[in-house]
């Protein structure tokens, strides 16, 4: 009895996967399992009723409050509405808001900035996250300190960390300028947020500093469920550390990396707080992102219809990205990912 699950874990771990570790282990865990068991275990009976019952509380919590606002957003996106008041004139414009969005040079520029921000920050966070996750998993003498240190930036609310970076990078009295000058690395104080490109990169640094923690902790959790036998077996075979990492650990981390990738992509594409606090989209709109633009359109300019259309486009893009990631990463190249 007591042994009933332990061998299971091992048999899963040691399973056919080890024969072809490069993509095998991820395959069975993500895609093949549900498929396989749909025949053996799941096919015994359909459980739509029970599923609905179990999903009901979540559905109430999630959709109870936001259904009307979301429907209103959809409705707004097909109208021209310039005031929040219920009595305000409304003009049906069909798809005009969406058509405008595709020809709006400001929005196109903002999309470019957002894509750049999303790609660079997410990639950096995943790479650093995987490395730091590995480091945190080591048996170190002051591991708690390492873990606390990596967590700290994450615990700092974005509004605070963005204000902090704005100050640290200040061109006149910023400590980073002071440090680099006093160390002789730069000759004189620099205007880090002064040009569009530099400002965008500084925002990315601030974002990576804060959000690498999430990636690192998810990787740590992911490592926790990787059966050690796999790695140990490889180690006995004499596989080098680097090769072991790429051929065994990384594929096994795939589900976790997917989670992080999807979460960070969603958050990055919606990025608002950090940009708004650090640069307000400047200089000369060089760090304007789509969420900041949607905010300005809907709130500052009270162009609610167009702002709603932009917001919906953001949702669509993020949703497509999420689906693409999930498919890409869950199939692992072996299965068609038929979920």
């Amino acid at each position: 009895m007591t042994d009933s699950t332990a061998p299971t874990t091992q048999s899963r771990a040691g399973a056919p996967a080890s024969a072809n570790p490069s993509h095998g282990p991820a395959g069975p865990r993500k895609a093949s399992y549900p498929k396989r068991f749909r025949h053996t275990y799941g096919s015994s009976r359909r459980s739509g009723g029970l599923a609905a019952l179990l999903l009901l509380p979540a559905a109430v919590v999630v959709f109870g409050l936001v259904t009307y606002p979301v429907l209103r957003t959809v409705w707004l996106s097909f109208n021209r509405v310039l005031s929040p008041m219920p009595t305000a004139p409304v003009q049906m414009v069909g798809f005009q808001n969406f058509i405008n969005a595709f020809t709006d040079s400001d929005l196109i520029a903002a999309t470019g900035h957002t894509i750049y921000f999303t790609l660079v920050s997410t990639a950096a966070e995943i790479v650093f996250g995987v490395l730091l996750g590995q480091l945190m998993a080591q048996k170190l003498r002051f591991r708690w300190l390492l873990r606390a240190a990596i967590l700290m930036p994450w615990a700092l609310p974005t509004v605070v960390s963005a204000s902090m970076w704005r100050y640290l990078l200040n061109a006149d009295y910023g400590p980073i300028n002071a440090l680099l000058t006093q160390l002789g690395i730069i000759g004189s104080y620099r205007s880090w947020l002064g040009t569009p490109t530099s400002a965008m990169n500084m925002i990315i640094i601030a974002d990576v500093w804060k959000n690498t923690s999430i990636a690192a902790f998810f990787v740590l959790a992911g490592l926790a469920v990787i059966p050690n036998e796999l790695r140990e077996a490889a180690s006995v075979d004499g596989a080098g550390a680097v090769r072991r990492f790429f051929s065994i650990t990384l594929p096994l981390l795939r589900p976790v990396i997917m989670v992080v990738l999807v979460l960070r992509t969603i958050e990055a594409f919606k990025v608002f707080d950090i940009v708004y606090v650090m640069t307000r989209g400047g200089p000369s709109n060089g760090t304007q992102t789509v969420a900041v633009y949607a905010y300005q359109t809907a709130f500052s300019n009270q162009n609610f219809g167009y702002g709603s259309a932009i917001a919906l486009l953001i949702v669509v893009v993020v949703l497509l990205l999420a689906v693409a990631y999930i498919r890409m990463l869950s199939t692992g190249g072996t299965s068609d990912g038929g979920r």
């Binding site: 959709f63 949607a294 809907a298």
Partner: peptide, 22 residues
């Protein structure tokens, strides 16, 4: 799952006014 997840993707700015009313 995607249906649930999509609410997580909505920029708050889009729904903040109707939510306020509710």
């Amino acid at each position: 799952v995607l249906g649930f997840l999509s609410t997580y993707m909505i920029p708050p700015i889009a729904i903040v006014i109707p939510l306020y009313l509710i």
